[in-house]
Design a protein around this nucleic acid. Structure first.
Length: 184
DNA sequence: TGAGTGATCGTA
DNA sequence: ACGATCACTCAC
């Protein structure tokens, strides 16, 4: 298995480039029992203060501060008191954007066989052991989670788009944007 | 369809 | 200081 990570320049592209390109990318998780391997199956893009579905539509706050950083750091937060959402900041400095990782599948690294599906951002955060300590950590620096630069076999072929989930409070213009990317 | 759960943010 | 809200999940 090629272990090279995605570069910092990848994450500093616009979120609408990064979000679909993250589909199929392999995530390596280091645990006491050894490495576990996943690939990304679903993402969502959140794009700037003008995007009424994005947390940054309310401007710079303690929570959203990290989104104003240049791309390539983690943005995590707790929702509904239970679920840690895993996001990666993208774009340039002061261009607040992030990709939400909404789903991953786990596979056996020797056989290449998929054996578990974690659909939904809450489940994704749980299986990866996300918590607030990851907030602001550079993606390339974290020693527990590595995002590799190559794709799970044959996973890039079919990308579906759909409106984003859970932002019913936003006006139709933003609610309807096809910024949810799904591997099929 | 609604309960569970706690950080965050706007209003005082 | 308080109350409403929330990029969700699971059981019913």
């Amino acid at each position: 298995m090629n272990q090279s990570s995605l570069s910092i320049s990848f994450f500093r592209q616009d979120v609408l480039e990064v979000a679909p390109q993250l589909l199929g990318k392999i995530v390596q998780l280091k645990t006491k029992a050894g490495n576990r391997y996943f690939f990304i199956t679903e993402t969502e893009a959140y794009c700037g203060e003008e995007d009424m579905g994005c947390h940054c539509s309310k401007g710079r706050t303690t929570r959203t501060e990290i989104m104003y950083h240049a791309g390539g750091v983690y943005y995590v937060y707790l929702i509904y008191g239970m679920y840690w959402m895993l996001n990666i900041v993208t774009g340039k400095i002061n261009q607040p954007q992030a990709v939400l990782i909404r789903g991953i599948k786990e596979f056996d690294v020797t056989t290449g066989k998929v054996f578990a599906n974690y659909n939904g951002p809450g489940k994704t955060g749980k299986v990866l052991g996300i918590n607030k300590s990851l907030y602001g950590t550079p993606v390339l620096q974290d020693n527990r989670i590595k995002i590799l630069s190559h794709n799970f076999q044959g996973s890039t072929d079919k990308i579906k788009t759909a409106p984003r989930v859970g932002i019913d409070y936003a006006e139709d213009e933003w609610k309807n944007k096809p910024w949810r990317f799904i591997l099929s």
